[in-house]
Design a protein around this nucleic acid. Sequence first.
DNA 1: CATTGTATTGCAACCGAGTTGCATTTTCGT
DNA 2: ACGAAAATGCAACTCGGTTGCAATACAATG
Lengths: 130, 130
Amino acid sequence: MNTSKTPRNTIARTEILKLVNDSVSALSHADVQVAINGLCDRVTIYRVLDRLVEDGSIHRIVNVDGIVRYASCHTCEEGHHHYHDHVHFSCDKCKSVTCLEEVVPSFKLPRKYQVKEVNFTVRGLCPSCR
Amino acid sequence: MNTSKTPRNTIARTEILKLVNDSVSALSHADVQVAINGLCDRVTIYRVLDRLVEDGSIHRIVNVDGIVRYASCHTCEEGHHHYHDHVHFSCDKCKSVTCLEEVVPSFKLPRKYQVKEVNFTVRGLCPSCR
DNA sequence: CATTGTATTGCAACCGAGTTGCATTTTCGT
DNA sequence: ACGAAAATGCAACTCGGTTGCAATACAATG
């Protein structure tokens, strides 16, 4: 039984994916909404972002402020989605959230914990703001 | 110049602090509200929790679901608040969020990043649920 | 290239977490 | 016991995100 839908290429999907991929920092729903400037409804943005995450085209970050942001998967090969275990840095001053894909923290969970997702966010001042 | 207010001991503060300290898992605002059962207004709960975090009596966790939770500072001596750099585990099944205070991830930020806060959350199944 | 099943969209209404302003009440040092 | 300042309650609000449903757009098929 295959419950997955066959996704379709729409203008909204194409534009939003391009937007996220071309951005240096992770984008929130609000960022995307401003950037696409009325191309589609805000609900559609939410749904497109959800779909893009689901099929592994982008990845989702829950920032220290509790707001979800989205970033491209640079280190992921097409159709082969990596485990997103790298650090995200949130700058207090310029408000940018960037993936530090080269920074992968090492840690050991003690008892029998079964890990499904990791979310590692660091807050402070980025190199250009401090 | 000292801008800090002198905190007062109120019933709400005392009860909420006791609640958080006595809990094995981290509590959300909603959890606290249910537990205190109408002792005070929900806004007061928000304000008391903020104050407790501010004076280092409890610590704040932003979970993978984006909801803020509060936990006691077991490893912190009175008046000497530790840097909260340990891992928090969020169970998908029983929905509990627990501090794994013994699990401190090691990572190296590359360029000149100035770290002020760390938030490390792991999602999956806890020992009793898997 | 018209048909058609289904994925996608827009709209409006909703939800839940968290915040704010302000008048009233409670603390606690004196 | 008094008074300044801290804390509270209430109501209204913001904001991120979700849902139901009818209308529309894709893309596979004939």
